[in-house]
């Protein structure tokens, strides 16, 4: 363990602690980052501090789709060319970027900010599900596309939302699941393979 040396000035230990709290940052990396900042020009450190403050002060969740945005409602929710009757439900804001890069989807989004994780106690109240229900109750949405990951938790979340929204009579669809491009059949797991077979298409 890279415990800061005794006598390390308090502002440095505080910065190390702050980095250490970030996901994927161990004690050694935290120390390296802190000393990097210490040696960096004042302007660089200032820019980082400003960026950190701005992201908390200026970025909020869109009151409609819960995507992160600088302006509420977000650009997807205010774009008049997007279909308001189809909502694509994703786990994270980054998933929207992936779908947008792929192109082809011209409806609206809804960001859950996580998935159900029954063993870790992550329940519906931890996700932005209430906001989704409110949107569906308004009656404008006719189709919900579940675009959660095909993991155990992603599937559980999609099935849960399907059952939860059942009484609202909205059509619920699931992204087709197949082989990722570049996948090697030999190493593909059985679930992915059998789902890909079921989703096969004629040439």
């Amino acid at each position: 363990m890279a415990e800061p040396m005794a006598g390390t000035p308090e502002p440095i230990t505080r910065l190390i602690d702050a980095f250490h709290k970030l996901p994927g940052i161990g004690p050694k990396s935290a120390q390296r980052l802190a000393y990097h900042i210490l040696r960096a020009p004042a302007a660089e450190a200032e820019a980082l501090a400003t960026a950190l403050r701005d992201v908390k002060e200026r970025i909020a969740l869109c009151s409609q789709c819960c995507n992160i945005t600088e302006r509420d409602p977000c650009s997807y929710c205010t774009d008049p060319r997007r279909d308001t009757t189809v909502v694509c439900v994703v786990e994270q804001p980054l998933d929207i970027l992936a779908l947008e890069r792929a192109g082809g989807f011209r409806g609206r989004y809804h960001v859950l900010h996580g998935v159900l994780n029954p063993m870790d106690g992550i329940g519906p109240e931890h996700l932005h599900i209430r906001e989704l229900l409110k949107r569906l109750e308004s009656g404008e949405v006719t189709e919900v596309i579940m675009a959660t990951n095909p993991s155990l938790e992603g599937e559980a979340t999609a099935m849960y939302l399907h059952r939860l929204t059942g009484p609202l009579g909205v059509r619920v669809t699931r992204l087709a699941r197949g082989l990722p491009s570049g996948a090697d059949l030999e190493y593909t797991d059985d679930v992915t393979l059998s789902r890909a077979l079921e989703g096969r298409q004629a040439f």
Partner: peptide
Amino acid sequence: EAYRPLREDLDRSALAIY
């Protein structure tokens, strides 16, 4: 064994996780 039916049914999935 992937136990696919345990992943694709909400009730069975909840029971299996338990």
